[in-house]
Structure formats: structure tokens, C-alpha cells
Amino acid sequence: MIGYIKIYSPELRMKEYVKYNAYYCGICHSIRNRWGQIPRLTLNYDCVFLALFIDSILKLPQEYSDFRCIVHPVVKKKKVVQSSTVDYIADINIYLSYMKLLDNVHDENNIIHSSTERIMRGYGKKIKYKYDDLTEKIDTHLKEMDKLEKEKCDNIDEVAECYAEIIKDICLYKLNDTEEQLKNIAGKIAYNIGKWVYSADAFDDIEKDISKNMYNPYLTRFNYEKGNDISAFKNEIKERTSFILYAPLKAAADIYEDMEDEYKDPIVKNIIYEGLYDRTLKILNGEK
């Protein structure tokens, strides 16, 4: 469930593109400065969206600074500095990655999974302690998700909701002091995007889950019989899946329309309308 929320770059203006990358670099550096090199590897684009989304609602001014990146040492790049959101998302990113690793170990305990889990354990525990009320909520949702997966739940809405609530809680934690109505709107957008991420990821994983004999909500929801042709099955459910994927996006876009213009950010808009649409098209067509 990682790295699904992306921009659609052909429709982005240059300054927006620079800002987007500056957030990515800002989060990456925040991880390095406070946690060291290893957890940097966990950074993904979902977190960049969350940071941008939260900052656009908090209307925090951003400061940029130039730096040279080890991955691209020749060009000078920009990063966002001094944003509490950037630090916050950097931490949450590590926590989510750690929880994912933990889940992997539960699903399939091989040497790679268990050793990476061991490396990340210390970071995970520290962050859990630092944001104890939020991480407790996240853990509850993950436990619920795990329970539904074990029960082979055939209600995709119910399973996806666990992840949706996590994304919502992550946003709301930072928006605690904003006015109620705005918080409500932001929460709904985050919920719907979380729902999309889970549903999209699950559809993407159908082949993998069949081969590993693991739970996948689409298999139970649409009664996949073992041994049936996978591509025929995917084709059969394509229309309904396209509804399952587009419905939360439509809802998120509609709610976003209701938001006051001053809180709207062109990059967030680009992601909600074009970025996620583009991803959905690709996922439905089986492109990576």
C-alpha cells in the first residue's frame, strides 16, 4: 500500500513541480537529520501528498534551501525546511513502513523480512512512543484489518475502511486546531483517498495473492475459484472494480470542490484529479 498517490506531471507547472520535489527532499532530509541513513530508504510519494495536503490546509509558509543530493550530486536541488509537517510526516512514514514490515513477517516469515524488521524495530518503537495516541489508533485499525483479513471478509468497503481511517487519522492529528468544518472536509478527503489506495493496491496484488495463496478482498468479493484463469477473472470484474476505484475519487473530488479556495493547492488538485485518475487507468489496464 505504498507509493500509490502520485502527481500527473505533464499537467503540473514548473514551480509546482519544484515544490513537490522540494517536499520529497525535505522529508528525506528530515529523516536523515533526526533518524539517520537507514530509514531514508522507506520514503515514498504517499507521504509527500500527505505533507502537502496538511500544509495547504494549515496554510503554513514554506522556506526553501538549496542542497546537493547524494543520488544526483551534480545538480543543485531545493528542499523545504522548517516545516513541522515535514518532520511529522517523516516520522509517520517510518512508522507505517515499520508496521508494513511487521505485517510481512506475520504473513511470510523469511530471512529478508525478519532481518529488515529487526533493523527498523528501534525506530518504530521510538515513534510509537512519541505519538502514542495516534499510533494507538493506527494499531487499532491495523488490528481490525488483520482480523477481517483472517476472516476472509468479502466486504471490500469494510476492509478498505481500516486503511482509510488510518490516512484520515494521520491528517486529523496535525489539523487538531483547525476549525471543525474544515477538519471535517479534510477528514473526508483523506478517508476517500485512503480507500482508493487500499482498493487499488488490492487489485494490483491479485496475481501475487493468488500465487501465494493469500487473502485478497477481490477474490472473496467476486468468488474467485482456485485454478480459474486469472486474466479472465480480472476482466470479468473490471467494470465493477472501476466503480470501486472511481467512487472514492469522485467523492474526494466533490468534497474538494466544496473547500474554500484559500485552502486549495494546485499540486493537491493535480493529484486528486489527474494523478490518481492516471494511476487508476493504469491499474485497471494492468500496467505498472
Partner: peptide, 8 residues
Amino acid sequence: QGWYDQAY
């Protein structure tokens, strides 16, 4: 409630 598949 946001349970679109069920609603459908």
C-alpha cells in the same frame, strides 16, 4: 458512509 460498493 463511504461504502460505495455496498451502496451500488
